[in-house]
Design a protein around this nucleic acid. Sequence first.
DNA 1: TAATTCGCTAGACCGA
DNA 2: TCGGTCTAGCGAA
Length: 816
Amino acid sequence: MENRGKSPLSDESKQPKQKKAFFISADYHVYGERTYVRLLMKGRRFFRLYKFCEPYFYIDAPESQAQKILSACAFDKGQQIRPLRVEPVAKILFGKEKKLLKVFAKYPFHVPPLKDTLKEYQAYEFNIPFAKRFIIDNGLEPFSLVTYSRRGRILDSIVSSSARPIQLRTMAFDIETYNPAGVPRPTQDPIIMISYATNSGKSGLLTWRDTGKDFASILKGEKEMIEEFCRVVKDEDVELMVGYNTSQFDLPYLQARASALGAKLSLGRDKSSFKLAQRGLRKEAKIQGRIHADLYSVVQFLGIIGALKVSKYTLENAYRELVGKESATKSLVKKLAIWQMWDDEGQRKLLAEYSHNDSLETLELAQKILPVEMQLSRITKTPLFDVVSSTTGQLVESLLMRASFEHNQIVPNKPGEQEIRQRTANMIQGAFVKLPTPGVYENLVVFDFRGLYPSIICSHNIDPYTLNCSDCGKEESHLSPQGHRFCSKKKGLIPLVLEGIMEGRAGLKDKLKKLPKESQEYADVFAQQQALKILANSYYGYLAYARSRWYSRACGESVTAWGRHYITETAAKAQDAGFNVLYIDTDSLFLLLGNKTKEDALAFMKKVNSQLPERMELELEAFYLRGMFVTKKVAGEGDTGAKKKYALLDEQGRIKIRGFELVRRDWSKIAKETQSRVLNAILKEGSKEKAIQIVKDTIQALREGKVPLEDLAVYTQLNKDPDKYLITSPELAAAKKAIKAGKAIDSEAVIAFVITKSGASISEKATVLEMAKDYDANYYIEHQILPSVLKILRELGVTEDDLKFKGKQTGLEGFF
DNA sequence: TAATTCGCTAGACCGA
DNA sequence: TCGGTCTAGCGAA
């Protein structure tokens, strides 16, 4: 961004005018000798404002050194770099007041060399992105209404004034490519369709062959189609462009085709195309003057925090799980056959529908998931483009950086590699899990601590800089079970921020109760509280995260130690009150009612709550009619109970299942379905016989070769480069075979494989689903069906032999 | 190069 | 062919 253009800001002399607009985002630009922050604003339309601004950082040096520091000299590409000026400032460093020097630089890229030149002093806040710095220092909040004054395009003053609903002109888009070689080749395979859909209800398809569809516009050729797409984006004055995997695929492909055809891909407001910004392992496309949001990143984020569970992050899966509908056309088109459909006049119509529908569904998905992202953007004061590609750690960090600035505190530095290694090697003890006794139980109650870790952090003021404070006496401070003391007088930054989040969320949840479920306001408030929940749950992880600026082993281990303390203490109380404690995991407690009533259970909960610290609360999760815990195999020893694996039947007849094979994607559909049916037969109907019959029928179907290959596929992700594995797992072997056969398998791909008849080891038998011709029935019976159902049926005294066919049926085994 | 730890399970690998 | 150990993936919270 150090692109030094001529200043466009010639009209600085005009009178300032007071105005209101929405603040959207900021970046920076260097014009000649000055660095300007460039703000993207929205009035009726998007527009830009500029503000001259000087980058700075802090160094820990006495004021007497100011002159010396001012004359320090660094070099960048042979150019001399000197500080612009040096100011003494009083800040709070690591919880204590401290005099520092604030060193100003001309350009953001002067900061690192200056900091290096002054390496005899400890430096702070030298690697905060400049635009982010500006947003923090000016108290700006994306999507909020601001009052500002300007002279021409130069910003004079700006104040965030209020939160107000904002509507962005949104467009979803998607391209289809000609792919005779499987994967389309950007140098030779054309784009055949571009579809789009806007939130104003407009949608269409651009293509260059007749499709017989009235939503399609037929252009002269591919080049004209790409240019027409740019025109549509411009005419619609798109503010928010959304797509699925558009950063990785659609946009780069559009770019490549545009250059191959001599067309210009003008998507930005300044007619530029897009820029790729590195975001972790991914690249994220940035379109000038608009917000580009690739929903793939958001879906992945939702997967990481556990808000979404899918085997593969495809648009189809995300749409099903998040929008709650089945895709209208996905099943009608096979990706690999797209080129044939394009060439076949009869099928082109269907392809057009499919493409058009992709954009419509992408738009629907965006409308479902972007509200939460927009709330995260506001709360963390991070522009939406950055939020959609942020990790939980970055969001938490943003919030803490803002709070630091507001409280005159210095942001702690990021750890160096050595420090990171040390932190990683030095693991923090986590939660407590009680070993359950396997069996089927009746009448259970499950309690859990609401937001256990966040509430512990707040209740005990856990923060790196309240640790071992000198402000309060030993007796007054919070003493953790591990012996760490936290100040009881001065609230730490982390508890302060977290308390704000939790109180905000509590308020929103109250508000939610009073709103009609179908109203827009309900949806808005729901998104807000969801965003706060995501953040609250991330704080403990951030404290214990090795690359965290606010890492503290003492804090992390105190949080978990208090967690173990409260859950085991509550379990002991339950035991004393006459309940049987069946199972415990982290923050939840499973009790057998026995001869106690539900009222007794609720009274117990009330009593526990009266004894807990203010912010902590035990909640009723639910009462259950039946529950089942199973055994696990222990090599060499007798079997014991399995943790993290149970099934519960609630009073409405719904089954809640955790940990069983049937919730795992690395088991075949046939095994998962059979296990699910068996579990239902036992928990709901109490019929062992029915369960046994289900298993027998499945085994027979497998032996007779009646089970479709799709039901036999196991889905597993490869997480490394194929060459870097020490062991050849079935999925790796299958992937290697597929690569050899010319199929494109990217690293991190989810491999769907089937165990076939040919080969000796299981790996040798593993073949990717699309290439598999047959299946090894015996493998599926012995390694998929029996282990998964026996886990359950053994509790009822059923043996392996009871499930396998006997008498006249045994002959079949030899036959197949 | 981007939140944590606890826990289960499989299949490969290795030595007897 | 066996049993123990290791690698790897995924889920619970």
